Simulated assay, not measured.
Amino acid sequence: MKILLLPLFRFPTGHTKAAEAIEDAILRVYPTATIDMVDLLSYTNPVLEKGVGSFYIKWIQSSPKTYQFMYGKLVNRKSTKEKNDELPVISKVFQKKMKQLVTKHAPDIIICTHAFPSSILGILKREGHFSNIPVINAYTDFFMNDVWAKQTSEFHFVPHQEAKQKLITSYHHPADNIFVTGIPVHAGITKTKATPSQQNILLAGGNIGFLDVDDLIELTNRMPNTTFTVLCGNNKKLFAKVDGANNQRLIAQGYITERAEMNALYENTSAIVTKPGGVTMAEVMRKRIPIFIDHFLPGPEEENFHYLNARGIVRKLNEQSLDELTDQTIIATMAHNITNYEQEIDFTLEQALSAVFESIAIHE
């Protein structure tokens, strides 16, 4: 069995983490499967991939309002019109490269964890290409933007029941082809509920702009029974500042490469302050950890926040009342709402993949 897995970008993103989770699940079901994971941008042109990634980061940081406007106009128009699941202006270069890529690998099935390759495949399928190769859309946010080829992709791994219903009613897909898996999470992040031995708040390093190190030290004084772990990633300056505070209840955590280490950290976490990236939210929700959002970027993070906040799964952090991070009434309510969401998931990744492979008669 040959499978082509299509995230976007080579640097770590939620889309690549979801692709890795799916790859792991495939090998659990079919250990001898041949899996090729390819980024269409770098396959088209390695320089282009770096340029697009750099431009995106600079744009969203320097002018979030214009990014939000263009995202709403081009990516998330919230329409169900025919052919609305492709970018209004798309380069023929990517269609040509996608043809070459699929022809070269000759897969039995294609799995997309990003809307862009899904959209390119949708265009090609409408033109009659690759009609014999099924495509799975594995959605990595809590909404389905308009770039995803929802009409032409045969199978869908969706984040929740509302998404399944939308694909049935608006796109007329059979229910048997839609699997509520939640956003794909690697099996290394286990379903064991976090059981911290004490109050330990996890702070994502990029999301504590409202606090400098002196504020964090003051916070440990205000909340003497709570430890704060700051995820610094590759930010060496932040790590040095936090570590240099010499405070036993203020811990600097560098970049984590092993999922087992991240899983262990989650299991000792009583609450997290972070941004609402789709895969991060799915990981934390799997551990039943209460989630507080300091801020979010326009686009996917904003859409994720609105969905999760409406369900009482995340809470906007009140910077004037940080004691809510350990408020047991708030914590219990959020944990209950997370549990309700998790109970709506019908399939594990392994179960969904097995069902798809069996339905199209793919065997080892």
Rank of each mutant, 00 (worst) to 15 (best):
K2M: 12
L5V: 02
L8Y: 13
R10D: 14
A21I: 08
A25C: 06
A33G: 11
L41K: 07
S42H: 05
T44F: 11
L48Y: 11
G51V: 07
G51C: 05
F55I: 15
I60S: 03
P64C: 05
S79C: 14
K81A: 12
N84S: 14
E86S: 11
I90Y: 08
Q100L: 14
V102R: 02
D108A: 08
A115I: 00
P117M: 10
K125W: 12
R126N: 12
F130S: 03
V135W: 04
I136Q: 02
F143D: 03
F143Y: 12
N145H: 08
D146V: 01
K150F: 07
K150R: 15
Q151G: 09
T152W: 13
T152Y: 14
V158C: 00
E162Y: 13
K164G: 02
L167M: 06
I168C: 05
Y171P: 04
G182S: 10
A187P: 03
T190W: 11
Q198E: 09
L202P: 03
G205D: 03
G209Y: 10
L219S: 05
T220I: 03
R222W: 01
R222G: 01
K237R: 11
K241E: 14
N247A: 07
G254E: 08
R259H: 10
E261P: 00
L265D: 06
Y266S: 00
S270L: 01
A271C: 11
I272N: 02
T274Y: 03
K275E: 06
M281Y: 12
M281T: 08
A282Y: 04
M285C: 13
D294N: 14
P298C: 01
G299A: 03
E303V: 12
F305K: 01
N318Q: 07
Q320H: 14
Q320S: 11
L322Y: 03
D323P: 02
Q328M: 14
H336A: 13
E342C: 08
Q343F: 00
T348R: 09
L349K: 01
I360M: 13
